[in-house]
Design a protein around this nucleic acid. Structure first.
Lengths: 341, 341
DNA sequence: AGCAAAAATACAAACGTTTGCACAAAAAAC
DNA sequence: GTTTTTTGTGCAAACGTTTGTATTTTTGCT
């Protein structure tokens, strides 16, 4: 059975396709009477608009592309949901791609999105990405790009980031208040804005308190496995009584390494993570961590994109919006004797 | 700057757009010489095909739609990745939608996909879904649908499921072998094939061992919260020494409830979950669970869809493929005295 | 009733491909 | 050397919308 088109509706009603198109679009240039007739007929004939044809004609689709490193990270999946909450009511739908942390896949994804003539792109970079030339194509084709969380100034357009600096600062300050004095740090690649900022916050808190900042910082220690290994290395290299981890997975790894070495958390060692992964709340001891507001971030990102699509926001004027974070104090950083905090 | 089209390339080369189209498509009706020239020019001019126009002309896009309840479930996100692994090399790309377990959103998502003229749809139903009429539209428009995990026979097309029966059977049999005798069950809605099958496996194992099957079965207890509440209820209603949970989140809830009541796992109470969520391995005690093979499931699903798209598999012939699962025995179900297993 | 202005609709071109068919040139067959 | 076949291109229509402009119809005024 052929699909019904506006031409079929037009024929059935004795009007032209253009009238049908305008009627369905709610264009005030068609009378209320015919508009109602058209809508009724469309419903009756089970009409489903062909958005592909519309996209071709208009040169833009109602689809927004979103590229994230992985969809199964708590933070990213929540940002995605929040973005949907804004975009769907606005008539857009989301094409989600994963870069799997690979620069090449990220580039490919962006190209696919451009080929599909998406209305705009929302993106958080892969860890690897250092070449941003694809985004010039996007700019050339006037497809707005909004970056969130892992952002880079080499790409034009709005950037929505977490307040990583303050999060790290609060986390470390809390460790200090709890009585820990020699605080190490596990982080990701310091090429990424996110980890740079957390590192900055970490250092700032230590400096402010007059504590040593050269205890030990391990880069590329962001997974459970690398967190585990790096903690073992640290134990051999240096002396410390707490670890601030730039991610919860690393914190879990650190916890296990400490456990395996017979060091108890939080009495012998304090740990604070980052991201508030769902498991953080029901491991033993419960992990103190920094909660990112994925919901607000998604909303802000989506709204920024809509503004950019509607041309309200010149893409050249790329500004940065910072979303506040929140420290969640749980067991892993609470020394019995200093619970006073 | 205008985008380059095949018309531009044609003009630059003094040929017609049709030749360019055929050249780029690798059609044998154009000579090797012109094909190479066209390809070179396309590269030189930075040509990006307009897949929207192609989709309109062909009546089909290279996009496949995928609808899942939520993308942040370990199982679903891994199926998605596996589907991508098959689909991307085959030239398709994925449009991912979430139903958030709502029947209405699922229906909406399918409609959006149909409007976008996707080549096919991959879907796992929301818990709520009981009305399958949208899928008749899909069938009418000859858009193949492949269901996975949460499937329903009311929808035409291939179904790829986990071996939920065997998984549950193995889990409960293992509890029995470990010495537990009164085994309760937390499950989801028994309208869903997935939970029906797990329930069947649970009962079968108990019957086989001659153990009572009326200890206590709590429906709609699949989240951490409901798992917690249901376990407390069970403790009041009945006497039991183990719980088989149809999901890991419920198992976590159960564990916490038991912990709060001073019942230790696994010595006083055995617990086995289902799904092998990533946290299952690093909570205390480590949770025994049934691992689903998301990778194989994704591959099989994607391949089935590609077959259906290519018309190799008549949609009417809807068959079911079952993916084996694996029991992971960890601490939560191992009584000290019966570790012999 | 007559005319201008406003409102509603029709016409037709465009968006960038793909593809059946026609056609010319080259190659093969007789 | 003519006819047939093969091979490579061109032509033009189609896919289903949207939208600027032209045309018709209605409305409001005098």
């Amino acid at each position: 059975m052929k699909r019904t088109t506006i031409i079929d509706i037009a024929a059935a009603l004795g009007v032209t396709p253009s009238t049908v198109s305008r009627a369905l679009a709610g264009n005030p240039r068609v009378s209320e009477l015919t508009r109602d007739k058209v809508r009724e007929k469309a419903l009756e004939m089970g009409y489903q608009p062909n958005v592909v044809a519309a996209a071709l004609r208009r040169g833009k689709s109602d689809t927004v592309g979103m590229v994230v490193p992985r969809i199964n990270r708590h933070f990213f999946s929540h940002v995605i949901s929040a973005v949907e909450e804004v975009l769907n009511p606005a008539g857009f739908n989301l094409l989600i791609c994963q870069s799997h942390e690979k620069a090449e896949l990220e580039k490919l994804a962006v190209q696919v999105l451009l080929k599909n003539r998406v209305a705009g792109i929302i993106l958080s970079h892969a860890l690897e990405t250092i070449d941003f030339s694809v985004f010039e194509s996007a700019a050339r084709e006037k497809v707005p790009v909004v970056q969130f969380d892992r952002v880079h100034t080499a790409v034009a357009g709005p950037r929505i980031t977490n307040d990583n600096f303050s999060g790290a600062y609060l986390a470390v300050k809390h460790l200090i208040k709890s009585g820990y004095k020699r605080i190490a740090h596990l982080t990701g690649s310091l090429n990424i804005n996110v980890y740079q900022e957390r590192y900055r916050g970490y250092k700032y808190a230590l400096e402010e308190a007059g504590l040593p900042i050269d205890i030990g910082v391990m880069e590329n220690s962001i997974t459970r496995e690398t967190g585990y290994e790096s903690t073992l290395s640290l134990l051999q290299q240096t002396r410390f009584d707490a670890v601030f981890c730039a991610g919860d997975f690393a914190a879990i790894g650190a916890m296990q390494a400490l456990h395996d070495k017979g060091l108890s958390v939080p009495s012998a060692m304090g740990i604070v993570g980052f991201a508030n992964e769902p498991f953080s709340d029901f491991i033993t001891p419960r992990l103190s961590t920094v909660e990112q507001n994925a919901h607000d971030m998604g909303h802000l990102t989506a709204k920024a994109l809509i503004r950019a699509i509607n041309g309200k926001a010149p893409m050249e004027a790329d500004w940065e919006e910072v979303v506040p974070v929140r420290l969640l104090v749980r067991d892993s950083s609470m020394r019995g004797e200093t619970t006073a905090y």
